[in-house]
Design a protein around this nucleic acid. Sequence first.
DNA 1: AGTTTTTGACCTTCTTTGACCTTTAATTAT
DNA 2: ATAATTAAAGGTCAAAGAAGGTCAAAAACT
Lengths: 159, 159
Amino acid sequence: MANLSDIIEDFIKKMFDDMPEGILEIQRNEMANYFQCAPSQINYVLTTRFTLERGYFVESRRGGGGYIRIKKLKIREGEFLKEIIEYIGESISGSEAKAIIERLWEEEVITEREMRILCAAINKYNLPLSPADQDMVRARIMKAVITALMDHEARKGGN
Amino acid sequence: MANLSDIIEDFIKKMFDDMPEGILEIQRNEMANYFQCAPSQINYVLTTRFTLERGYFVESRRGGGGYIRIKKLKIREGEFLKEIIEYIGESISGSEAKAIIERLWEEEVITEREMRILCAAINKYNLPLSPADQDMVRARIMKAVITALMDHEARKGGN
DNA sequence: AGTTTTTGACCTTCTTTGACCTTTAATTAT
DNA sequence: ATAATTAAAGGTCAAAGAAGGTCAAAAACT
């Protein structure tokens, strides 16, 4: 984990621990200065790690007194899994799939054990197919599993 | 006598001696440089020697700060799950796979939820491939998942 | 002959940097 | 007071850099 983007990502995520509201404001230049990097690297981290699919919403304002505000989204039980299924679509890369699985765990939709099961099932070394087929099969597996989870929840809840 | 691939294999395996967690990270180019070989030879060694069947799990990431992570799976000898993996082999039909999953549930190796997750993952309707490929991919997924479960249990159970 | 290993050319993904741009607030000049 | 200017943010985009991946042909074993 030697790259700066990951370090910045972790740093920001830790800042959320002190923010019970789940809303955080940062100054781009201050942060860039702290990490001794180009300011645009902060944007890079935000656009690759703090996306909607990963459960964050980013707003900002320029000019004097400007800021970047990052909100950690609270999931809406009923629609959360449905949205993820839509996001997955027909094909998904290994790294995106992994991000989704991690998010499901963070949101406590799946257990750690289940996370491991899923990661194993979609790992490219375990899917001996052409890259394009891998992405397609991965999307199918992900959607099937999430659908199964939804069904399970529904049955439990409705009895 | 020993060819380069064997030497690299041994070298990597020795590196595990210093890693009590059984998780190792290497740099492909660094390693290729050390052994004065083509970088792709490292991939060759990984795909032929560090497979699930041999008890390893490989993940990687490209780009700056990229890496190849090799996990030596912790598996207790003589475990029931190991027999199942052998039984699965290279290819398995949907009905056989389903029977195995149900058996795992009956033996309380997996929860009901996990059973549903697995059944969804290996269902033929979710694997848009030729029948032969389906059976092969299904076997891979089953083995990967069972291996992940064994590793998870072994790590949890205080090594 | 058949299988395994080795090599190399070419590809994809992810990160970092920098030059240039836009928006907003604060200050200054009229 | 208002308009013009300056300062203070943040934004964009493309190029360069830093990994790792793939595939098939050639070479070396058995």
